[in-house]
Write a protein that binds this DNA or RNA. Structure first.
Lengths: 210, 210
DNA sequence: TGGAAGTGGATGAAACGCTTCCGGTTAAAT
DNA sequence: ATTTAACCGGAAGCGTTTCATCCACTTCCA
């Protein structure tokens, strides 16, 4: 949360920095990364000057939020894998409960402005790679358990996850039902063959770079 | 397509009007309803002045596009119901192939600016109601056929459809696979009970008004 | 062919967001 | 308690973007 280069911030400055990131998370989640800087400052309860001293421009802020968020998501994926009984449960947990996942998707997919900030930063790329590898492990595990149908790949799961997590309307209860339907579709014993071939981890990574 | 109040337009004017609406559809589909008016004019191959004479402000343009589009979607739903062998097939056709559906969703869900334009216009509301009623008929039909699981409602289908059609990344082939998974989840013989209760037509209409 | 209808883009106005700057404030070291 | 370097807030300036109008020119059609 406070990974900074060198200098240690004064207590109030550190507090403000955290508040700014938290506010930016909320703002980005709600309205995308081109939300006015002033609005983010307002949400954080700090002046616009404070925001700009800490983050010289929008890209720096986006990058900081992305670091924070992809890191949290990697933690969550690791926790799901470690704590859940089965890989299938880990998958369900990851698809269903993750706010961090939601924001990460917005960041990586929905905002052209955020693209560079994210793809240029090695730490973020590392986190993203780890996340995908963990997801891959979970997917393979769930298939080995016989819980997850064998003809889907990690990329397919990522796509389905992204569908559930995109911003939009629909109350949570409705989304929970939609997820249950999707999970039924993901269980072993497919009704029909899927078109094309499974989208694997590598395909997904490749497609992210496009 | 040319439903106008009273005056009949000159041939070239009518042509331009159609081109503007077509361009606006493309622009809105790609970038949302707050795309610059000038960009729409450029896409349509007309001057900005022409656009403004025909549609005094953005709201008028949005309304015209929405009328056109919801009408087309209603036609498509009617055609699906009439032409497909089974209601299940009609459902698949509607969920899978509809660009009009995609744009309608963008219009009705994604753009705060468009909200008023759409909800104030009785013709659009009428179309939307008809669309939902047709969907309801298709859903009930597919359930009567035993093809669609009985514990989902029209609202559930609408939610799942909206998931598939929201803007976002993912190549079409990937989305086709995602849809196939969802369809497997929708077939009869559910794996597990869905949480909550089925979201019916009325629930959906109510939720649209919020 | 007359003239009403239509066209397009230059243009001014206005809104918006970015960023700087500096007088005042506060944390923390002594 | 005093000092001071770090920090704060937000007013103000600037550049950009978009809206919406207007009018000299063009096109359609009776």
């Amino acid at each position: 949360m406070s990974t900074e280069q060198g200098m240690r911030l004064r207590a109030d400055a550190q507090r403000n920095r955290d508040q700014i990131i938290a506010a930016a998370k909320r703002a980005f989640l709600h309205g995308g990364t081109d939300q006015p800087m002033e609005e983010i400052a307002r949400l954080a309860g700090v002046g616009i000057g404070t925001l700009y001293r800490r983050f010289p421009d929008r890209e720096a802020l986006v990058r900081a939020v992305a670091q924070d968020n992809f890191g949290a998501l990697a933690d969550e994926a690791r926790a799901a894998l470690a704590e859940e009984e089965t890989s299938w449960d880990a998958l369900v947990r990851l698809l269903g409960r993750s706010t961090d996942l939601r924001l990460s998707l917005r960041l990586s997919l929905l905002s052209p402005a955020a693209w560079h900030a994210i793809h240029d930063d090695p730490e973020i790329v590392r986190h993203r790679t780890e996340i995908l590898e963990l997801l891959d492990e979970i997917v393979r595990g769930a298939q080995a358990e016989g819980a997850l149908r064998a003809d889907v790949g990690t990329g397919d799961i990522a796509v389905l996850g992204s569908l559930l997590l995109r911003p939009g309307p629909g109350r949570d209860e409705m989304l929970a039902r939609a997820m249950a339907v999707i999970l039924d579709g993901l269980r072993a014993a497919p009704g029909t063959a899927l078109p094309g071939h499974a989208v694997g981890l590598q395909d997904m990574i490749t497609s992210l770079k496009t």
